[in-house]
């Protein structure tokens, strides 16, 4: 797949025992037991045909096992695994960069923006990894692609 657009991945913590998410300052409904892990709850790329199934297949390819998180793609034991996955997916679909946002950060970000330009700018402020596809590319190329509205 060829693509000139960044890939955005939104991730969260999850407790597989109860299928619940833990938010930074929230009081839990039940005592959380079991191992927590990361999962991807949402992705976005301007590439139209990227699907959840593509992410599942990529997860299997990277970790040699099936994604079994019923609320997203995962589990990822740590943030490095998550980044590793994001990078491999970004390279596979030809995205120049992969941006990571936690659900918590994303929600905080959305609360602060009021228009499309602000939203786009904030999306680009997430943790970013450049893929091999982009190394050596003039950064102004990216700037032209993802221009403000």
């Amino acid at each position: 797949m060829k693509n000139a657009y960044p890939l955005f991945l939104i991730y969260d913590y999850a407790n597989p025992a109860v299928g619940e998410e833990e938010v930074a300052d929230e009081s839990s409904v039940l005592d959380l037991q079991g191992e927590k892990h990361y999962r991807i709850t949402y992705f976005f790329s301007d590439q139209e045909d990227l699907s959840w199934n593509d992410l599942k297949l990529q997860y299997q390819s990277v970790f040699m096992k099936e994604s079994d998180d019923h609320l997203g793609i995962g589990p990822f034991q740590n943030i490095s695994d998550l980044h590793r996955f994001g990078l491999s997916l970004g390279e596979k679909i030809g995205s120049p960069q992969v941006y990571f946002h936690s659900v918590f950060d994303y929600n905080q970000m959305v609360e602060q923006v009021f228009d499309i330009a602000g939203f786009k700018k904030s999306l680009l402020a997430g943790h970013m990894i450049e893929t091999n596809k982009n190394k050596g590319t003039n950064s102004s190329f990216f700037g032209r692609i993802f221009k403000d509205s």
């Binding site: 709850t41 949402y42 609320l71 997203g72 659900v103 929600n107 959305v110 609360e111 228009d115 602000g118």
Partner: peptide, 22 residues
């Protein structure tokens, strides 16, 4: 308290003049 969908993402929409409403 922001209203969130089941995946934890806040409900936010773009209205007809490009504003983002939460």
């Amino acid at each position: 308290s922001l209203a969130c969908a089941s995946n934890g993402l806040v409900y936010s929409v773009i209205d007809s003049d490009g504003s983002i409403l939460k």
